[in-house]
Simulated scan of single mutants.
Amino acid sequence: MTRKFLPLVLTLAAVAPAHAELTGKGEAGLVIASGNTETETANVKFALAHERDKWKNQFGLAGLYASDVDGTTAQRWEVFGQSDYNFSPKTFWFGAARYEDDRFSGFEYQATISTGLGRKFVDTDRTKFVGTAGVGYKVFETRDAFDPDTGVLLEEGGRGEDVVFRGTLDFEHKLTETTSLIDKFIVEAGADNTFYQNDFSVQVTVTKVLALAVGYSVRHNTDPPIGFEKTDTLTTVNLVYEIK
């Protein structure tokens, strides 16, 4: 599985520079341990943005895979997109969509479409701070939950839907010419469940297009299915390829 992630990122990175109007970045990290401990962990992220006149369109994907001698321990992928229309230099309307498949969260999938308003609170070469707020519609499906000791069915999975509040905060600040702090936060709050995710990373530029990033991600569902933890964390060390 890990070998499938890296060729995808490298292929996208090779093709993207031919489209000079695009900006974005691809990230990939891989850890393989053998001997007394047999583990494999891989994660990838890829995001593109295109701006023209008053419009900005964004698209991205992310994937995570981990395994040990007992089998797969993590498997998640996500796709997302957003279109912004700028009313003024600092205020914009957005429409967004997100789909997530996480085999170890208790959810078969979570899919959300949303719309609302955004504001560029700070927009300089050194610091960028953008927030959005709006409403959305979420569709999700939970998995059957079983007792780990007896195998007895505790709760049947099923499909659900909810109206949610959707908010984001994106912050990026250049500490030096080569070091940046990046933090991205999203919340989808509904009556059945509230989902939070915060991704923080420190990125150090190595060349004009390559960088190293150390990141820490926290994901939280307030009401996951029975038998599943509310919070997942992930620490990553990734190679970053920037498209400028």
Rank of each mutant, 00 (worst) to 15 (best):
R126G: 07
L48G: 09
L48F: 15
L234K: 13
K25E: 15
T233E: 14
T179W: 09
Q58P: 00
D70H: 09
L117V: 14
K25G: 11
N193F: 02
T233F: 12
R119W: 08
G71Q: 08
K138Q: 14
T205P: 00
F80D: 10
R98K: 12
E242C: 07
T222C: 01
Y65Q: 13
R103F: 11
G136Q: 07
F87R: 05
S34H: 10
L169G: 14
E21C: 11
D70A: 10
K174G: 14
A213P: 03
K174Q: 11
Q197F: 04
P17E: 10
R126M: 09
T236A: 06
T11E: 05
G151L: 03
K138A: 07
E21Y: 12
K128Q: 14
L239H: 07
A189R: 13
F165Y: 08
N221H: 04
H19I: 10
G81L: 00
Y85N: 00
G190F: 12
K25C: 10
G106D: 01
D53M: 11
F87D: 12
N198P: 13
F185V: 15
H50F: 15
Q203F: 08
F140W: 09
Q110F: 00
T179S: 13
E177K: 13
L239D: 11
S83P: 06
D123E: 15
A96W: 08
V139T: 07
N193L: 03
E156R: 14
I182W: 01
K54E: 15
V202N: 00
A97P: 01
L212A: 07
P17Y: 11
G134I: 05
I32Y: 15
